[in-house]
Amino acid sequence: MRIRDRFAKTEARVAPYAFISPFFIVFAIFGLFPLIYTAWVSLHDWSLLAGDQGYVGFANYRELFHDSDFWRALTNTVGIFLLATIPQLILATVLAQVLNARLRARTFWRMGVLLPNVTSVAAVGIIFGLIFSRDYGVVNWGLGHLGVNPIDWQGHRWSSWFAISVMVDWRWTGYNALILLASLQSVPKELYEAARIDGASAWRQFWSITVPMLRPTIIFVSIVATIGGIQLFTEPLLFGSGVNAISGGNSGQYQTVAMYLVQQAFTGQRFGYASTVAWVLFLIIAVFAVINVALLRRIKSVE
């Protein structure tokens, strides 16, 4: 009897932890351990196939700091991120507003904007690679009718950034619009009615009611977009094709940091150095997330 009581007592204390433990155990195995192990590898001269070549301290970090290819990749990443994310969030907010209005076949439109997100990235990459192809692409064909000379989209920095941003936006605008729509619907209608009575224009209503009410959601959406944007990999990889696609163009003009990481690890076989890139990338994302929150805090909350 007493043993049973005791057991029940212990159980009551342990059970809550048992309930939440699956997440933490899985996170420890697949999240925390790789993170720490990567940090460990980054302090070594580590060849992928030949293995550990000895401890080198922070030499990899010092090298990375002076590595012009890394800085170029970082510039590309931030450039593509800004070029893709800003129009994407603006477009998503406007789209959410439109979807919130009285529309015929509302559910159809709402599901429709999610469709690009359901498509596999690989398919998107291949199709957009063809659309922006130099010799036989639809975009150049269209531009040709307007008298513009064909653009080598992969060949130049700005054109390749633009094409990749289009690809990213095509996939993610609808998804973000739906999240914003969900939070739009929780904005009390009375606020708009009161504003209308006070004679506020539609623009004023959007700016003074919708945006402040959406603030928490905008913060969430932009942090998720930041994490995705800074880790951008598949779209630029599939934008180029051929044996050497990982170098992101002949001069690395659209190589992102994530691509540089993979190139160092698997083409260059420098596993230690690639781990360094991975850790620095992690820190950069953290910094960007903080900047994001700080900036978006400045959007006034509704009082």
Binding site: S133, R134, D135, S241, G242, V243
Partner: peptide, 17 residues
């Protein structure tokens, strides 16, 4: 000016470029 094993290269065979 086509890169080996790219879509452009493959298309080049078909289009005789």
């Amino acid at each position: 000016k086509v890169q080996a094993f790219t879509k452009e290269w493959n298309a080049g065979f078909k289009n005789g470029s």
